[in-house]
Design a binder for these strands. Structure first.
Lengths: 204, 204
DNA sequence: CCCGGATATATCGCTACGATATGTCTCATG
DNA sequence: CATGAGACATATCGTAGCGATATATCCGGG
């Protein structure tokens, strides 16, 4: 019953879903996508790719890089099985969808699901975080005092972060609901631009 | 040269530093301490304790729980070696101190170091995050457009979170500096109370 | 021409996780 | 008083993912 470890797998499926790619690029895209922190290591990526080859979710095709070149590049692409699996994972709602690591990837590919699913995942994630908050708060009541200054500050900051996360999710949920009413219009909450004055000098 | 994996070790050393404890309690305290998210698993804790026994950082003493009881409880306490090691780890500044996971624990035990160390760790952590921010920003310039709505929103939220983290660190650094001047006075920034009107009704 | 840095693939050892097993103690409720 | 739920307590197993590292090619600038 999908015991985790699908994190990377889903990410790879999602990226290959929009065209073939080779390992190195896969990693770059992934790290940009979830760039905020954690970087995906080759030590995770390549074994996963191997595994996905074994289970026929993807297939490789050693394409020559450009002209005559000894440089080899293994380009991966989805099989029909892989395509189906991606579909299955994306429509699956439940714990696996809103676990810490998984959620980010699910969210990144939200564009490929319908609103009903999106709402359920967002709400699931939110209650998960709220449960956590409640648990910590409850434990704080029991323990009370005796914690030192810095530990307390860390505590406070952690709680605040989670609360912010909850607010963010709430906004997203509202945005989805709005979108449900004003049908088809682009969400007003979701930022579309971000066109900062980029230098655009091809290369130094 | 301390290849990571000291995360839990430092935490255990720090907790035992303020008195003997048994595994179960160690876990509870730790999860409360870093409660925000990740919970420490027994699958991590017990093997670590075993390892620390082997390296003589801690020692166990099977104390009878209360009176005549078949219930066994293994109480761990620091050895002199362990005490020294804690000291060493806490005064060590460098990458290991401000890595994602390690930082939280280092911070939680800040009360046991002097300000010079604290400042260096906080500043180290801050530049780490700023580097990350710069890297993401730079990559965004290169890639630009072609990312879908949700991926972009995830991006934006991630960046915002890290920026908040940086601000938090800056405040802490300022607080430390203030404290340096007004010598010995308790930091005005760090919250001390949090005495919410708790119901205290033993159990429903 | 050669060196450094980006591109590209790959493996190894290990940390920590999540699930799970097993047993004991406490206490409320029937 | 028995019984069973739930906290307390210790422990192990399989495995995902990390970080470091190795190897090799390509390309541009000094």
């Amino acid at each position: 019953m999908a015991r985790r470890g699908e994190t990377i797998e889903l990410a790879v499926l999602g990226l290959l879903h929009e065209g073939p790619m080779h390992g190195y690029e896969l990693r770059k895209r992934l790290n940009l996508m979830l760039g905020w922190g954690r970087v995906l290591s080759y030590g995770s990526l390549y074994p996963t790719l191997k595994k996905m080859l074994r289970t026929h979710l993807i297939e490789e095709s050693t394409a020559p890089v450009a002209s005559v070149s000894k440089r080899h590049r293994i380009v991966y692409q989805l099989t029909d099985v892989g395509d189906l699996e991606f579909e299955r994972l994306m429509t699956e709602v439940g714990p696996t969808a809103w676990e810490d690591d998984n959620f980010g990837i699910r969210f990144a590919f939200f564009g490929r699901t319908d609103m009903e699913i999106r709402l359920r995942v967002l709400e699931g994630r939110r209650s998960r975080l709220q449960e956590r908050l409640a648990r910590v708060q409850q434990q704080l009541e029991m323990t009370q005092a005796e914690v030192d200054q810095y530990a307390a500050e860390l505590q406070r900051h952690g709680v605040e972060s989670v609360e912010r996360e909850v607010r963010w999710l709430s906004e997203l949920i509202d945005a989805e609901r709005d979108r449900a009413h004003t049908q088809g219009a682009v969400s007003p909450r979701l930022h579309t631009d971000q066109s900062s004055p980029v230098t655009r000098g091809e290369e130094p």
